[in-house]
C-alpha cells in the first residue's frame, strides 16, 4: 500500500518533468547581470562641485537600513519585559552576541567605550545585508530587484575608514602619539629588523582598510550576482524544466545568502574589534 503510493508519486513527478521539458519556452530575453548593480540616479538633483547629490539605489537602501535599525531600536527600547517575548528574545540574542562573542572575546580593555561603535557597525551591516535579500522596487523602471547597500564599494569603504580612524584615535589616546607609533614594532627586536617590521606594519595598516572593505563588498556582490544569474538563466534557457530546476536552486542559494549576510556582519564587527583592541593594548 505504502510502496504503491510512493511509486505513483514518483511516476507523477517524472511525468511532470517530461511535460515541463516538452512545453515550449517563452520569448528569449536579453539579460545582463551588470545592470543589476548599476546605480542610475532615481531622483536627479544638482551637483555641488564634484559632489553629485542625485539620489540613487544605494542611497535609498542606506535610508531603508537606517530606518529599520531606528525602528527596531525604538520598539525594543519601549517595552522591555522581564519575561521576553519572541521579538525581544531575538534582539537579546543579537545583543548578547555583540557584547560577549564579539567585543567580549577580542578586546581586553575599553570594552564599555568601544561596544557602541562595534555593535552599531554589526547591526548596521547585518540589517543592510538582510534588507538586500528583500526584493524592493528600485531596479530600472521601478521593477522589483535585489540590491544591497553593502554591495557598493563606497559604502563598505566608508565603514572601513571609520574603523581605520577609530583604531588610530583609540591607540593615540590610550598610549600617546609617540609611544603608539613606536610600539608598531616590538622593542626587543634587533635594530635593522625592527625598522623593517615597523614598515611592514605601517603597510599592513593601510591594507587592513582595503581587505575589510573589499571582503564585505565582494561577498555581497558575488552573492547577489549568483542569485541574479540563477533567476536570469531561466530566461536564457527557454525551457520550463531548466527554469523549475534553477528556481529550486535559487532557493538554496538564497538560504546560503542569509547565512553569508550574518557571517559577514559578524566578521566585519569582530575584525573592527580586533583592530581597535590591538591599538588599545599594544604588545611591547
Amino acid at each position: 500500500m505504502k510502496r504503491g503510493r510512493l511509486f505513483v508519486i514518483l511516476a507523477l513527478v517524472l511525468l511532470g518533468v517530461v511535460v515541463l521539458f516538452l512545453l515550449p519556452g517563452g520569448e528569449s530575453a536579453e539579460f545582463d547581470v551588470v545592470e543589476e548593480f548599476a546605480t542610475h540616479p532615481l531622483i536627479h538633483l544638482p551637483s555641488i562641485g564634484p559632489v553629485d547629490l542625485s539620489v540613487n539605489k544605494t542611497v535609498v537602501y542606506l535610508w531603508i537600513t537606517f530606518g529599520v535599525v531606528c525602528v527596531l531600536a525604538f520598539f525594543i527600547n519601549r517595552g522591555v519585559k522581564p519575561v521576553p517575548g519572541r521579538f525581544q528574545f531575538a534582539m537579546e540574542t543579537l545583543y548578547e552576541l555583540a557584547r560577549d562573542s564579539i567585543v567580549g572575546s577580542v578586546m581586553k580593555s575599553g570594552r564599555e567605550t568601544w561596544f557602541p561603535y562595534i555593535a552599531g557597525v554589526f547591526f548596521f551591516v547585518l540589517i543592510s545585508n538582510l534588507v538586500g535579500l528583500v526584493p524592493l522596487p528600485f531596479a530600472e523602471h521601478w521593477s522589483l530587484g535585489f540590491y544591497a547597500a553593502t554591495a557598493n564599494l563606497y559604502v563598505t569603504l566608508s565603514l572601513a575608514l571609520c574603523t581605520f580612524v577609530f583604531t588610530h584615535y583609540a591607540g593615540v589616546r590610550n598610549n600617546g602619539p609617540v609611544a603608539y607609533v613606536r610600539n608598531w614594532a616590538p622593542a626587543s627586536a634587533p635594530p635593522v629588523l625592527r625598522q623593517l617590521i615597523w614598515v611592514i606594519h605601517a603597510v599592513s595598516e593601510v591594507f587592513r582598510v582595503v581587505s575589510l572593505s573589499v571582503r564585505l563588498f565582494a561577498n555581497m556582490l558575488a552573492g547577489h550576482a549568483i542569485l541574479a544569474v540563477f533567476f536570469g538563466m531561466a530566461l536564457l534557457f527557454q525551457n520550463y524544466a531548466a527554469a523549475a530546476l534553477l528556481q529550486g536552486g535559487s532557493v538554496l542559494i538564497y538560504l546560503f545568502e542569509l547565512f553569508v549576510a550574518f557571517i559577514q556582519a559578524f566578521i566585519f564587527a569582530i575584525l573592527s574589534g580586533v583592530y581597535i583592541g590591538g591599538a588599545l593594548d599594544q604588545e611591547h
Binding site: V106, S211, V214, R215, A218, N219, F266, I267, I270
Partner: peptide, 14 residues
C-alpha cells in the same frame, strides 16, 4: 575560526 575564515576567504575575493 570565524576570524580566520574571514581573513582566508578574502584572498579568493581578491
Amino acid at each position: 575560526m570565524f576570524i580566520g575564515i574571514g581573513v582566508t576567504e578574502a584572498v579568493a575575493l581578491y
